[in-house]
Design a protein around this nucleic acid. Structure first.
Length: 541
RNA sequence: GGUGCUAUCGUCUAGUGGCCUAGGACAACGGCCUCUCACGCCGUAAACCCCGGUUCGAGUCCGGGUAGCACUACCA
């Protein structure tokens, strides 16, 4: 009988959640959902000195934004930023589980699997300086100040006296410890290279990661531990701990994920790399109250959560075919640990952009409008001192903004970039791009524009916007009424289409770029279009 | 230093002994489309770390090198 799948994501609240951590959470989530199991979130805050206020909220909000849902443990209450704890295996913060750990530390002490050590950090440091490669283990423990070398009364007296101590795990030497890893297969490490790890520190009355992790995973009935490769070297210790507790039968399966590497050079992806190369390494923007730093986030940079998910999913995992685009549902369906790569993946930020571009195209113009409006309003506010040039009619009309977005979204990767592509719709140009002028504004252009102005004057307000959709070869072509007015005129005078149209474009846009010209005139309307041509003629002669 | 993990185009990867003349995607480059800039479409260039072995046959299995990474805390 297969046991029910219960996986956990167990971050430490020491700052913003690293993108690698996000991927770990994602893989845990995909695995849980696929097996109709439980995704649990536990906070590992056993290092009181590294706690950063707000980090816990940040982690939960980030997962919530990405659509990684938590079934048990700590999570963000739906639609709020309130934290709630659900489930019967709590508490889910390790700092709230002190009494539980006491009991298990005692069990190990009583069964002779652990001992008390009084060596101070300073003494250990001195020892390491004195003896190269010093390790607290079977070879050295009998020379140290601990309950194995000191009489029981002295140990008791020291403790009663308030002396700080730690509890160390007593690793038996000369044993090959086998770790079965779902991604890497059998990993064997000899216990001689393991040290007597500290399991509990009396200084803050908390266990270290290793003890807390094993106890919690056991008590919370975790079936699979899916975590980063940096934990592989300590996996044998964990196996030994399960055995010391007598829990080998229910020990979870392990899967150690490959690391996310720097895009250039070698090494683990770090916050510094993001700053250096100009991309976020955190899901959300984070204001660190402890050191005052601000870290940029994917959300604030204009990323869509589904793009981040897709991008991250493929950094270390790949399906059986050539599929690149995956919805969360498809990932849940197709994900499998044995298709996770063994080697680290360099963080390919360019591909992340591409994913965002793809998902941006999938969003409706209305959705994008809602996302773009704050950016638009801010930009317009910055221009407000020259309010005469802002076209309020378009700026304040959501439907118009949506239309403009529909014309330009295929050329951006991020929502904020929409501004660069659409600004001329909202604000009439008063300056003209030099390069465009040099290439496209010819000697005859003023005369052409004068004539075009006269011609366009004759078009009725109704005809101005008229167009018909033509479908041929599965392509939709828009035939504009204005096209039928202007093209014969160009042909009649034997003007160059490119010369006239580009000059016209410069008048409207301020540069030789942008969507189809009749789509632009359609949005601007007759009055605005003609006004822009007149302005350009005034400025450019 | 020790231990472990890993090794296919610049990058993410497909590949589980013959379907490999090594496939896809990003990026790059070229072309098409076109009033412009983009998008899109089409195409080009681009890789099995090295040396042995097993086998009729190796990117794929084995061994040895080499390189990279991770760990080596009273941090997680």
């Amino acid at each position: 009988m297969e046991r029910p799948v219960r996986v956990r994501f167990a971050p430490s609240p020491t700052g913003a959640l690293h993108i690698g951590g996000v991927r770990t959470a994602l893989y845990n989530y995909l695995f849980a959902r696929q097996h109709h199991g439980v995704m649990l979130l536990r906070i590992e805050d056993t290092d009181s000195t590294r706690f950063v206020p707000g980090a816990e909220e940040y982690i939960l909000e980030a997962l919530d934004w990405l659509g990684i849902e938590i079934d048990e443990g700590l999570r963000m209450k739906k639609g709020t930023k309130e934290i709630e704890a659900v489930g019967s295996h709590g508490p889910y913060r390790q700092s709230e589980r002190r009494e539980i750990y006491h009991q298990y530390v005692k069990q190990l002490l009583d069964s002779g699997h652990a001992y008390i050590a009084f060596d101070t950090p300073a003494e250990l440091e001195a020892k390491r300086a004195e003896i190269p490669n010093f390790q607290y283990d079977a070879r050295t423990r009998m020379q140290m100040r601990n309950s194995l070398t000191m009489p029981a009364e002295e140990v008791k007296a020291l403790i009663d006296n308030g002396e700080k101590y730690v509890v160390r795990f007593q690793v038996e030497p000369n044993e090959d410890v086998h770790v079965h890893d779902l991604i890497r297969g059998e990993v064997v490490i000899n216990s001689n290279i393991l040290d007597d790890k500290v399991l509990y520190k009396s200084a803050d009355d908390l266990p270290t990661y290793h003890l807390a992790n094993i106890v919690d995973d056991h008590l919370m009935e975790i079936s699979h531990v899916i975590r980063g490769e940096e934990w592989l070297p300590s996996a044998p210790l964990h196996v030994l701990l399960y055995r010391a507790f007598g829990w080998s039968d229910t020990m979870p399966e392990f899967a150690h994920l490959p690391l996310l590497l720097k895009p250039d050079g070698n090494g683990k992806l770090s916050k510094r790399d993001g700053d250096r190369l100009g991309f976020p390494v955190f899901p959300l923007e984070f204001h660190n109250q402890k050191d005052g730093t601000v870290s940029s986030g994917y959300r604030e940079s204009g990323y869509l959560p589904e793009a981040v998910i897709n991008f991250l999913a493929l950094l270390g995992w790949h399906g059986t075919g050539d599929q690149e685009m995956y919805t969360m549902g498809q990932l849940i369906e197709q994900f499998s640990l044995d298709r996770v790569s063994k080697s680290g993946a360099k963080f390919d930020y360019e591909k992340g952009k591409w994913f965002n571009h793809q998902y941006l195209q999938l969003r409706s113009n209305e959705e994008l409008t809602e996302m773009f409006l704050p950016v638009l309003n801010e930009k317009i506010a910055q221009l407000d001192n020259q309010s005469s040039i802002v076209n309020r009619q378009i700026v304040n009309d959501k439907a118009m903004v949506a239309k403009v977005i529909g014309l330009t979204k295929d050329r951006v990767n991020f929502v904020p970039e929409l501004w660069e592509q659409t600004n001329f719709f909202f604000v009439a140009p008063t300056e003209y791009d030099e390069k465009s002028l040099k290439k496209r504004w010819k000697e005859d252009s003023p005369r052409h524009m004068q004539e075009l102005l006269a011609l366009l004057e004759t078009v009725s307000e109704e005809d101005w916007h008229k167009n018909e959709q033509m479908v041929n070869d599965q392509m939709v072509n828009t035939l504009w009424h204005l096209d039928k007015v202007v093209m014969p005129w160009i042909a009649e005078h034997e003007y160059g289409v490119g010369i006239v149209m580009n000059a016209f474009r410069i008048c409207l846009v301020g540069a030789a770029r942008g969507p189809h010209i009749w789509a632009i005139t359609d949005v601007l309307g007759k009055e605005e279009t003609l006004a822009r041509v007149r302005t350009a003629l005034k400025i450019l002669g």
